[in-house]
Design a protein around this nucleic acid. Sequence first.
DNA 1: CTGAAAGCGCTTACAG
DNA 2: CTGAAAGCGCTTACAG
Lengths: 336, 336
Amino acid sequence: MKKKVSLKDIAQKVGVSTALVSYVLNNQKVDRISKAVAQKIKDTAKELNYRANQVARSLKTNKTNIIGLIVADISNSFSSTLARIIEDEAEKHNYTVIFGSSDENAERSQKLQDVLLNHQVDGLIIAPAEHSQSQIEYLLENEVPVVMIDRHFPGLEASYIVIDNYKASFELVEHLLKNGRKRIGIISYDTTLVNLLDRKRGYAKCLEDHDLTVDPNKIKEVGLIFTKDQVEKAVNELLSLPEPVDAILFASNTLSVLGLKYLNTLDLKIPEDLAIVAFDESDAADLFYAPLTHTRQPLKEMGKLATKTLIASIEKDDTLVQVRMNAELIIRKSSG
Amino acid sequence: MKKKVSLKDIAQKVGVSTALVSYVLNNQKVDRISKAVAQKIKDTAKELNYRANQVARSLKTNKTNIIGLIVADISNSFSSTLARIIEDEAEKHNYTVIFGSSDENAERSQKLQDVLLNHQVDGLIIAPAEHSQSQIEYLLENEVPVVMIDRHFPGLEASYIVIDNYKASFELVEHLLKNGRKRIGIISYDTTLVNLLDRKRGYAKCLEDHDLTVDPNKIKEVGLIFTKDQVEKAVNELLSLPEPVDAILFASNTLSVLGLKYLNTLDLKIPEDLAIVAFDESDAADLFYAPLTHTRQPLKEMGKLATKTLIASIEKDDTLVQVRMNAELIIRKSSG
DNA sequence: CTGAAAGCGCTTACAG
DNA sequence: CTGAAAGCGCTTACAG
């Protein structure tokens, strides 16, 4: 790379101190600097194509204006949609975002967090992986601004923006029951992440409230990654019970897409033979011949609020925001 | 944020110079430093939970180990898939990625590029927006490592990794012709981006080669963003020609999904009444009742090569890689 | 084997 | 109205 022009270059050319140049280019002490000199400095900066070295500034000010974002997988539409919303909100406040994908793996997320902290990010927005509570605790102990999104660890004195997964799940099941389904299966993940546990709880509670038994055989849990075969197996098992399910609740986007792809290969008609409901949206679920009844998370609000909360915390150091938003039930054809 | 521990803290505690601490923690001059002192330094670093300040290091070394990535829109699956591949490859080489979405807008991408350069990224991977050639030229003049991906500007002495769009498009049309389609429409973008012009060229050339006239009424171009209504209008126009089209080529992922959503509302059967082919993949196109015949870009290879090329250029300063990869034609039900 | 010192490019109290 | 100077936390030639 070519030699970059520095404050010093401008100072020399104009014949003033670097201090003055710094003040002028940062619009500081405006009233105390002669218009003429200020203009000359600005002109010279433009002429030399000056570009402030943010790294040097950061070292001095202890502020990078970079937000670290840790998601499960940036290539997943849930994560990337959130990333875009966060990017836009961050930009409004003059922050840039540096990201990493944890693959739901605590080791990876630890490494990512370390790298981001080494880069002195001003704060972090994290969709925490399973077993990563201690990583969040580390941030809290070191007073690093952080807000969790999508999932959180109950009991931590940390900001988070999530949805009411329990309620959303309850509503999906209730809707199926209203539509006359009696044997509802659920395919979720084998995990201790609260958001997913809440989805299971909502499912079970709704059945109980309607005096139905919660049958462990109707609850399937697959791995958080590399789930394709497991989803197919789970669907098969639900369909080959002595009394096969007449409805399936998929606990995520990814699961429903995998499930639908597989169901497409079977000789089954949705919703006649099987009703489907799912968490989250996707073009795929829209284009499926029986568009999916699903839960819509207010991603825009979540992403914006998370970013605002983080920035407030970075800039004022005193915010604790714990929000559980309501998801919306979107009823379409797949639930019969 | 809490006070961080620095090299100096370790040096003081151990009773050595910061230089020595720096050498030890960076595994430099290993042979010249006494094992005992080295071990003590390492232990103390661990004990104090030392975290290297990458910003300070960057200022000194003029290297941030950050790659800037500018895509059209990180929330779009094409961009986010690429982002993930780049993330993984970058990580292997010890780089992190900071990203921004240009929305296909040259002003936005200029601003993004400026921000990323201010942050002293070591290099940039860019899917350049229309009319942003001068931005790339600026990078070249200033010897900032850069590689373009997905699109490029012919004539620039810059690295790029793209696919042979002309050929891919030609093949899609040829496939439709082989399947007996006679009146093939195309829906693409109103843009000067070469990759899309090439898709149009391939379409036209294939028709000509088969002694078919290229009918301007069958070529529809919509805006690069906010395209929904325009796609619907374009589909309508193609279907209400005196001699309606019997096949449509969608020039992107986004276009095909919008198109299929709309076609779903019409009383048309794919592929019987209308054949569909498209660029790029998506879950949506997979799940559609007539899975789409499409062009598959080797995204993995492209992303990896782009990242490797960029890093080589950062670290050796002498690589020019211009690659036009072959896309694969995936034949499925939608083309009849 | 180890340390003193310079310097990366900024910002910012302080002095005048 | 302006400048000299210190310092952010590192790295790295140089000297011993």
